[in-house]
Write a protein that binds this DNA or RNA. Structure first.
Lengths: 247, 247
DNA sequence: TATCAATGTGTCATTTTTACACTTTCAAAT
DNA sequence: ATTTGAAAGTGTAAAAATGACACATTGATA
């Protein structure tokens, strides 16, 4: 058997990225429409593609994400592998695969990644691989291509579990944010109401927010104070063994 | 390009299993020594092998585990994918791979699985694939074949996080166990001392332990009362939305 | 200057957590 | 029979965290 060329595509392994955002009201996720590549249905997909043999999984996820959406240099955390041999079962999926892959019949295992980004940092745009990319409201998504809906559900679960334990929500907000915005974010992710006063007390007691002593401008109501996430303080606390950042 | 035969081995994807046990003193893990297959070093490995194209990942993990160790029908939970292209970098690794694989040069991505079993339920034995399989003390393991040491560390971390949230420790104990045994188990996994009285109070308050009103026999000290995990009660509580089984 | 909309704030009762030491029970040894 | 060793089992008080709950403040706009 011939030795494989290390920089060819690996026909068996892909990566898919679940990129969450927050539009100040709801959780959103970045989807692509690969219409340019003759994807026949109207269903959207998570940005994802096959990996090369000479890149590691994390690199592949970053490369693919950038190729499909333009987003780069973000922290992607692995969610897990999805690999039912019947994963690509719909004829439409196969049709589409043929248009971009050497071996549409092959069984593909995909490694899913999750990230949280500030929605304002990224303006959706088309690329040579995707007709369009854009933010969709998570709660309005009811189907996706392949098994991407299942992957999205797993990602939501993971986000929920993680935000209970670690202060990751800040990644979804702009640098300066209000406590109300953070409050709404937690309610969106945990999918349940949280008492305003108790939320504030608890989040402030963590000691990882800096009050910027600045007020919102131009809002038609009492302007809120702005805060920022104090990463240095967070790292300090973490390193001294403190780990009670849960919610 | 030819259509692949669906039941051949997929040369690019393997599964590895991290099976934890508890010997009433320490956390243990199931390792194999593939001496029969000319594995040259003395390093042990996690049970793992390539998958077939027509089986899903969970099935593959169960099959491989049974082939290598005889353990079957256990609940395996996915840990994640490990796939640095330089994963198989040592010459000894390649040598060994050649003895069991068609394509030792190919880049292999492995999907790791974790499980907790009652050590007494499994008597290590050799198989046609592994010279021997046996329990090793986790704290005494400092190297393993391939990237298995790294996988083991990730598995320990996951176990630690999970036991803080869910009552999974019971899987490592026999049906009847004492609170002291459970206490030692939690200390082993969390790797820190827990106050005896506080531990008992908290674990009993969860309401998922049944006191069997039976005493240990033949121990050279005050015999302990025996308990069992009340799974029905746990499911009841879970279904009513209660989820405070943390520690 | 009145209205609207969201911000911001405190207390009390309950529950949870933490720290801490001595008595009980059985088997084994004398 | 008695002693000894080894682990089991048990309670309390102080501190911290949680949960429930309502009204005054602020700025923009009409």
């Amino acid at each position: 058997m011939l030795k494989k060329n290390q920089s060819e595509l690996n026909p068996n392994v892909s990566v898919d990225c679940v990129i969450f955002g927050f539009d100040m009201e709801n959780l959103t996720v970045l989807l692509i429409d690969r219409g340019k590549n003759k994807y026949p249905g109207s269903r959207m997909a998570l940005p994802g593609n096959l990996i090369y043999n000479d890149e590691n999984l994390d690199e592949a996820a970053n490369r693919v994400l950038e190729e499909l959406t333009g987003l780069n240099n973000i922290y992607l955390e692995q969610l897990g592998a999805f690999g039912d041999p019947n994963r690509i079962c719909k004829e439409s999926d196969r049709e589409w695969l043929k248009s971009i892959r050497a071996e549409p019949e092959a069984r593909v295992i995909t490694i899913a990644y999750v990230s949280l980004v500030q929605i304002s940092d990224y303006t959706p745009h088309a690329s040579s691989f995707a007709q369009s990319a854009g933010w969709a409201l998570v709660k309005e998504i009811h189907e996706l291509a392949f098994d991407h809906y299942e992957i999205l559900q797993a990602a939501k679960e993971k986000l929920k579990e993680k935000i209970k334990i670690q202060p990751i929500g800040f990644n979804l907000l702009p640098e300066k944010f209000t406590l109300s915005q953070l409050h709404r974010l937690y309610e969106s992710v945990l999918d349940k109401p949280l008492d305003k006063r108790n939320f504030r007390r608890k989040i402030l007691k963590l000691g990882i927010l800096t009050n910027l002593k600045e007020k919102q401008k131009g809002v038609p109501h009492k302007p809120s104070e702005l805060y920022k996430f104090n990463e240095e303080r967070y790292l300090e606390l973490s390193q001294t063994g403190y780990d009670n950042f849960g919610f």
